[in-house]
Simulated scan of single mutants.
Amino acid sequence: MNVALPPDAFAVTAAPVCEETLLLGMPQLCLAGLSETWLLKELGHRHWMGLAQMAGRAVPDFRDASGEPVYAAFSALSVTDADFARVRENDRITVRSEIRRISRTQCASRHTLTSAGRPIGTVHLVSAFVRRAPGGGNHTVARVALDGFPPPDRPEATGLAARAAAFRAGRGEAEARFGLEPDEAARAVLEIDPCPAQDFNGAGFLYFSSFIAFIDRAEWQFDSRRAPLASTRSREVYFHGNIDPGERVVVRRLASRRDAGGLAHHCRLERAGDGARLADVFTHRNL
């Protein structure tokens, strides 16, 4: 359980671990079972608090040498072996979370989910410390390194951070892993006007869980007749950028596959004003 403690109650630790069992109610559920949007917000908070614990702090208030705030922006996430449709109201899930430092600027967390002793999914999150340029908006963020953390672990050659870096360098094979091939005929586009009161977080960024919500909204637009109660089996997201309030987002479907077992697709989120890539999202859903 995440508990706020006095600063002297913490010691710097390389891999903080916490475990908590939660009773599921309406905030944690959607029509198809466990709400992925709620789950990502919850795990994002656990990741953020884990960073504080790893740095020996009571709260995650990070700042650069000039006193400007530094945030942990998610650069990649994956959901694997998900069975979110298994749980319903009044069920309990146990979430076991651990976090570690993987480079001077990046940290990674792993969250395993079980219900009634059965696994229902694993979520990996990778974050990078970032700050805005003075007077700049969300187009001007840059990575920074912070002191006060344990030395980074040896990076995993095939881990999520490595896959995200390979994809950004044009060497990714995510489409092959999700059984997708680019299909010009399958392309579809949805433009979304994010709402500051719903889609942005307290730091002023378009929240990472909103990216996933936009993908699900686009899937509903493109495939609602085929997938009225789709539930995520696996998902992998590589984040590239962000927007300022008032800017629009385009969701562009680049590839898709449908069969009796489910629905898979690759969607790209772009900034409507200049076409800049915001995220690439690979999704496999149960029908």
Rank of each mutant, 00 (worst) to 15 (best):
G148E: 01
I99M: 14
F149N: 00
P152R: 00
R104C: 13
R92I: 00
G137S: 04
I102R: 11
G136T: 00
L160V: 06
R101T: 08
S103K: 08
R104T: 15
R132G: 04
I93W: 00
Q106G: 10
T158E: 15
A142H: 14
T158C: 13
V130A: 01
D147C: 01
E156D: 12
A133E: 13
A157D: 12
V123P: 00
A161N: 01
A145F: 02
R131Q: 12
T140W: 01
P134I: 09
R96G: 09
P151S: 06
P152A: 06
A108W: 09
G137H: 03
T94E: 09
E98M: 14
C107Q: 10
N138A: 05
G135S: 08
A157E: 14
H139E: 12
S97T: 13
I93A: 02
H139C: 07
T105Y: 12
T140R: 03
P152V: 05
L125H: 02
A142N: 09
R131C: 11
P155H: 08
R143N: 07
P155T: 12
R101N: 08
P155Q: 08
G159L: 04
D147Q: 00
P151Q: 05
V130F: 03
H124K: 11
A133K: 13
R104V: 12
G136H: 04
G159R: 01
T158A: 15
S97L: 08
R110F: 02
P155Y: 07
S103L: 09
G148V: 03
A145T: 08
A133G: 10
R104D: 15
R118A: 15
D147A: 05
P134C: 10
T122M: 10
N138V: 02
T114F: 08
L146I: 05
V95K: 04
I120G: 03
T114P: 05
D147Y: 00
R101G: 10
V144F: 04
A142I: 05
R96T: 13
C107I: 04
V141Y: 09
H111M: 08
H124E: 14
Q106Y: 10
T122R: 10
H124F: 09
D153I: 10
S103E: 05
S103G: 13
A108Q: 15
R118I: 09
A133C: 11
R118T: 11
P151M: 03
E98L: 13
I102D: 11
R132Y: 09
R92W: 06
C107L: 11
R143E: 07
C107S: 15
R154K: 15
